[in-house]
């Protein structure tokens, strides 16, 4: 039986080996290249996606583990009003330099604000700490998160 994955509101039949880590299925087979591979070790957060509304790294866990669950990638974040608000806030505050960490951060922020509409600073940094940014856009990201929470 082919593996079926629910991604961004659509169902995809997947021909990759079901043991393939989800990120390779997203990027190579389904051409959803917004999620980035930064380490392959669940240490940097660049590959984060939403799974049933919670943040999960996609670079280690096999695609088959995501069967029957609702996956949202950066390409589908804008399907919700909250996701669009987060994206707009990142633009408004120029919350990126090179942009490689941006997809993961937007995914994590959307999940955070979904479960906590008005997170305090500790909740924000806890939610974002699994995500590395090497350009130092952190202060702008934190402002964008505050803005998205307020609006």
């Amino acid at each position: 039986m082919t593996l079926k994955l629910h991604i961004n509101g659509k169902t995809y039949g997947v021909s990759s080996d079901p043991g393939t880590p989800l990120i390779y299925v997203l990027r190579d087979e389904l051409k959803l290249k917004g999620s980035k591979l930064g380490c392959g070790l669940e240490q940097c957060g660049a590959c984060a996606v939403l799974v049933d509304g919670k943040v999960e790294m996609s670079c280690v866990t096999a695609a088959q583990a995501f069967a029957g669950r609702e996956i949202t990638t950066i390409e589908g974040i804008g399907n919700s009003a909250l996701g669009r608000r987060v994206q707009a806030a990142f633009v408004e505050f120029s919350a990126a330099q090179c942009g490689y960490c941006t997809a993961g951060l937007i995914v994590a922020t959307t999940a955070l604000l979904h479960r906590d509409a008005a997170p305090d600073r500790a909740a924000v940094t806890t939610a974002l700490s699994p995500h590395l940014c090497r350009c130092g856009s952190h202060p702008r990201v934190l402002k964008a998160v505050d803005q998205a929470a307020r609006s």
Binding site: K36, L37, T73, E75, G78, G99, T102, A103
Partner: peptide
């Protein structure tokens, strides 16, 4: 900022 609106949508192209 150039490219930012594509970055937040996951549409900015990196060499990867």
């Amino acid at each position: 900022m150039r490219g930012l609106s594509e970055m937040v949508l996951g549409r900015f192209t990196f060499v990867h």
